[in-house]
Design a protein around this nucleic acid. Structure first.
Lengths: 153, 153
DNA sequence: GGCAATTACATTGTGCGCAATATGATAGTA
DNA sequence: TACTATCATATTGCGCACAATGTAATTGCC
């Protein structure tokens, strides 16, 4: 390897490092666009869909617990949940045991929508073109990177 | 493999498919937080940083060309570039050849900031904990998925 | 030249996400 | 009980991203 090649490699490494994050941004936006296509007819966004699925799976959750599961805080969740409540998909009620807490639950309409959207994850997976093994590998990589970035502050 | 195992695998497959995208969301936000730590002292955001680097690399660009490179439209770029112009990092000028076009260039202060931020990509790469090979693999996977999602509409 | 179609940006409105702050409820303590 | 600290959520302000629309400049065609 010549010195000029090493220089070039180093420059490429920098470009790669700097762009791996932007590549992820771009891919996420492409995923979002694909979800938007499948979800917009039903009047919900991708984050709302995730919130609906999460509450649907875990049963009624406090806002704080939902935030832990989704890695989001009340500044994001409060208005999102209010929009979903206005759309009739979830209920929000103060916990009588502790009036500070707000418990979020899926309404009948919300469950109905979840049923109608049951095939969405598979459609997205097919569109992504990733094999099951690639999905597993990617997911493992993402989890590892996220943990590294979160703890390595 | 028993039927119950198959059912379980199928459920897990669905969960994986549905969550690979959200895992990417979470990872991107972790990357953003890492960049924010390194960039906020200099008064710019991650998208602004990318825009600055892109114009710095390619030389003066029209808004449209920058949008092609960043995969963003004028609805995002126009206000972003105006903020960067207000911060003195870029210049914006109508192209005399075609007054519809706005040409974006990096100012002296912008070049100075780019120099000061030269080590940021490497710091991020180190924090991510990914090896060079893993970076390459991940980048390849992301490019492939993005293209599939973009074309497969 | 005159006029419609196209091009390149800008603007508006909506939602997501984060930081900082505010509000109200609960717990702890004197 | 009163007073403070803490906790759970809400609110505000800012920036990013997208969709839809608006506007001014250019091109194409007659």
């Amino acid at each position: 390897m010549t010195p000029s090649n090493r220089t070039s490699d180093s420059a490429n490494a920098l470009r790669l490092e700097q762009q791996i994050c932007y590549a992820m941004h771009t891919t996420v936006r492409a995923f979002d666009a694909a979800y938007r296509e499948l979800l917009s007819d039903h009047g919900i966004s991708y984050p709302q869909y995730i919130a609906l699925m999460t509450v649907g799976e875990h049963g009624p959750l406090t806002v704080g617990r939902l935030g832990e599961l989704m890695h989001l805080d009340s500044g994001t969740l409060s208005p999102l949940l209010k929009r979903m409540e206005a759309a009739g998909l979830v209920g929000r009620a103060r916990d009588p045991e502790d009036e500070r807490r707000v418990v979020v639950s899926v309404t009948a309409a919300g469950h109905h929508l979840l049923g109608a959207l049951g095939d969405v994850p598979h459609q997205i997976a097919v569109r992504s073109g990733l094999s099951r093994q690639e999905l597993l590998d990617l997911h493992r990589t993402l989890r590892r990177v996220t943990e590294r970035l979160d703890t390595g502050a």
